[in-house]
């Protein structure tokens, strides 16, 4: 699914900050929004999710946002927030994942099947009878991911999906993201982990002051010291180290090292 943005504008009430995107297209696959606090990343994500009222147009494969979401949000857009505590409210981990499926009035056995397989995918099966709030922060984050994965939407919007995850969970999530990309889903995420961004190698959109400062592949951004400095960001660790070693072409990630 292609998301086309035209003349998107949004101003925070009582703030000089405004989001201004004349034109942008999110293609199927992963696009990562990076930038400092207040650059407009969250705002853009919320606009695409239809959670705020903005000026301009956002189309989904040609269909206007309002019409797209009119038929129900659950199977269209999956959105997870930074703090998993804000999204969980059911009495057990199982019910948390099943909730969305039940809202869609799916047959019981289908709900059960999908819930169990999603929990399994995220390594949460052993917790299925527990109260979500009894889980560790990392597992809660995985749970919020599970609640959207179970619904299999066309579009995924993630606000800092790796934040709070422990190392094994990060590996798991990276793998899941690759699967979603292979399935042709459109994923937009906010991330401040440059190492991970470089590893994924997907398109990045650097935002500053409510506008797009860079749009393209990671290498073009990380090799531009001026741009990095202006946006208060650091290049990936591997890049820094390979530059220090005076490599002819500094590597962005481990995969690039001979």
């Amino acid at each position: 699914m292609e998301i086309t943005i035209k003349n998107l504008q949004y101003s925070y009430p009582g703030s000089p900050f405004s989001l201004n995107l004349p034109e942008y297209v999110f293609a199927p696959g992963l696009t990562t929004l990076i930038g400092q606090n207040g650059a407009g990343k969250s705002t853009l994500l919320k606009a695409v999710a239809g959670l705020i009222d903005f000026d301009g147009e956002i189309d989904f494969d040609g269909e206007n946002l309002q019409d797209f979401l009119a038929k129900g949000r659950l199977t269209k857009i999956g959105y997870t927030f930074q703090d998993p505590n804000d999204q969980l409210f059911n009495s057990t981990v199982y019910k948390e994942v099943a909730w969305g499926l039940e809202q869609l009035k799916m047959p019981e056995d289908e709900v059960e099947k999908r819930t169990i397989s999603t929990l399994d995918k995220l390594g949460l099966t052993e917790f299925k009878g527990l109260n979500p709030y009894d889980l560790s922060l990392s597992d809660k984050k995985l749970l919020t991911l599970a609640t959207v994965l179970a619904l299999d939407p066309a579009i995924y919007l993630f606000d800092e999906p790796l934040m709070c995850l422990d190392y094994p969970s990060r590996q798991l999530v990276s793998q899941l993201f690759n699967e979603l990309i292979n399935e042709g889903k459109t994923i937009i995420m906010i991330c401040h982990d440059m190492d991970w961004v470089a590893e994924m190698g997907s398109r990045i959109c650097v935002m500053a002051g409510g506008q797009v400062a860079y749009d393209g592949l990671p290498r073009g951004f990380f090799e531009n010291e001026q741009l990095l400095k202006e946006n208060g960001l650091l290049p990936p660790r591997v890049y820094q180290l390979s530059k220090m070693l005076n490599m002819a072409t500094p590597c962005l990630s481990l995969a690039e090292i001979q």
Partner: peptide, 29 residues
């Protein structure tokens, strides 16, 4: 929380009764 719930498809309620019904998902977290 209300915002996050909205993202999960829980509609902000219009009538008093549905307001009461949707209170639970917000109250717990």
């Amino acid at each position: 929380i209300r915002f996050a719930q909205k993202a999960r498809g829980i509609q902000p309620a219009k009538s008093l009764w549905s307001k009461a019904k949707t209170l639970m998902p917000v109250l717990v977290p």
